[in-house]
């Protein structure tokens, strides 16, 4: 494995010292373009963990669906997954105290179907394909990754560099984790502003201008929703969709069953339920068989709500959910706006 030594070293130490019962991470599957999740309990297996730039699942979602309750679990996470775990913790779906987040810096991931042959690592200014360094080809990256503003998982317990020994402890737990692996907390050399520029550029490109023709926008989304075959993939993979009794289920009253494409309320409901906390993890779009560009819709709405409510999803576990809270000032404000 070409990169990710810091991650593997830390995981190995954490398992050896009994700091966690198991670690959820990606390991190489049947070949170098295949990564699959694995719950690792044996420290010796830590060497199988890969940080190659593929993200076929949200590990936060896997944790919520299949993680053992009551165990101490480590996760090797990119920012999107780290933020997903924090959002789940806010909603009491996982216990943050039992979770140890080993963050890995990330500049984008690719879908192996679109990618070239050979293992891929994406860096902020280059990429390595099958061992050869090349100029970064942004068209290979998932759309949501290009718009991402969180290359460094500062909300995890530690942030590891892809290449080399760099690792930063972000929390006291993180300090313990680095200490266990005999690693020193050292600063990052990542150029955060370049990522901000890339994110802004792609957001500008992907998000329709809200000031212009509404009808065109509406027609576009209705046409996209017409393709939907109600596979529930978007709902199933979303880290924020954990409800066992989901409003979209066929035996609930909301979305009339037995209709293909499903009533538009299917999409508008999920959008309304998720948008305030959308992580832009991209899993919904990655899983949609009908190629509906879901993240374009969810991410744009989330950005709008983010600025209105001054709320960043998945950063701070103590931040209250925007639609479940209000401020003193709002109690006093007389109008229907936020004041």
């Amino acid at each position: 494995m070409r990169y990710g030594d810091t991650v593997r070293k830390t995981v190995q130490a954490m398992l050896e010292k009994g700091m966690v019962d198991e670690v959820l991470a990606f390991v190489r599957g049947v070949d170098e373009r295949d990564v699959v999740p694995a719950f690792i309990t044996d420290a010796a297996e830590a060497e199988k963990i890969t940080v190659a730039s593929y993200q076929p699942y949200s590990l936060a979602s896997i944790l919520a669906d299949y993680g053992d309750k009551g165990k101490k679990i480590g996760l090797v996470v990119r920012s999107c997954d780290a933020r997903g775990v924090i959002e789940l913790a806010k909603r009491n779906q996982v216990n943050r105290d039992d979770i140890y987040l080993i963050g890995i810096e990330c500049y984008g991931t690719v879908n192996p179907a679109n990618a070239k042959e050979g293992e891929i690592y994406i860096f902020h200014d280059a990429m390595e394909v099958g061992g050869k360094k090349e100029a970064l080809d942004e068209s290979l990256l998932s759309a949501n990754c290009r718009r991402c503003e969180y290359p460094v998982p500062g909300m995890a317990d530690i942030s590891c560099a892809i290449d080399g020994d760099g690792a930063i402890a972000n929390t006291p737990k993180g300090e313990e984790m680095l200490a266990a692996a005999n690693l020193k907390s050292q600063g990052s050399t990542v150029d955060a502003s370049a990522m901000k520029e890339r994110a802004a550029r792609w957001q500008d490109k992907d998000f329709p201008n809200l000031g212009t023709d509404r009808q065109e926008r509406l027609d576009y989304w209705l046409r996209q929703f017409d393709k939907c075959i109600k596979c529930y993939g978007c709902r199933n993979v979303c880290p924020l969709c954990y409800c066992k009794d989901c409003a979209l289920d066929a035996d609930r009253v909301w979305v009339e069953r037995g209709r293909m494409p499903p009533p538009r309320l299917f999409h508008l409901t999920r959008l309304m339920h998720i948008a305030d906390s959308c992580l832009n993890c991209g899993q919904c779009e990655a899983v949609c068989p009908m190629e509906i560009p879901l993240t374009r819709l969810y991410h744009q709405l989330h950005n709008e709500l983010r600025s209105i409510f001054d709320y960043e999803s998945g950063i701070n576990i103590d931040d209250a959910l925007p639609l479940g809270t209000f401020t003193e000032e709002e109690m006093k404000a007389g109008g229907v706006e936020l004041g």
Partner: peptide, 28 residues
């Protein structure tokens, strides 16, 4: 997805050449 001797779920396999990480409602 299996826990001990029980299958508890299904996830798409992104590496697969036919469906490339997507499934229909039956597959799911």
């Amino acid at each position: 997805v299996a826990r001990d001797n029980r299958v508890i779920g299904t996830r798409p396999w992104q590496r697969h050449p036919v469906n490339e990480g997507k499934l229909c409602i039956k597959g799911w």
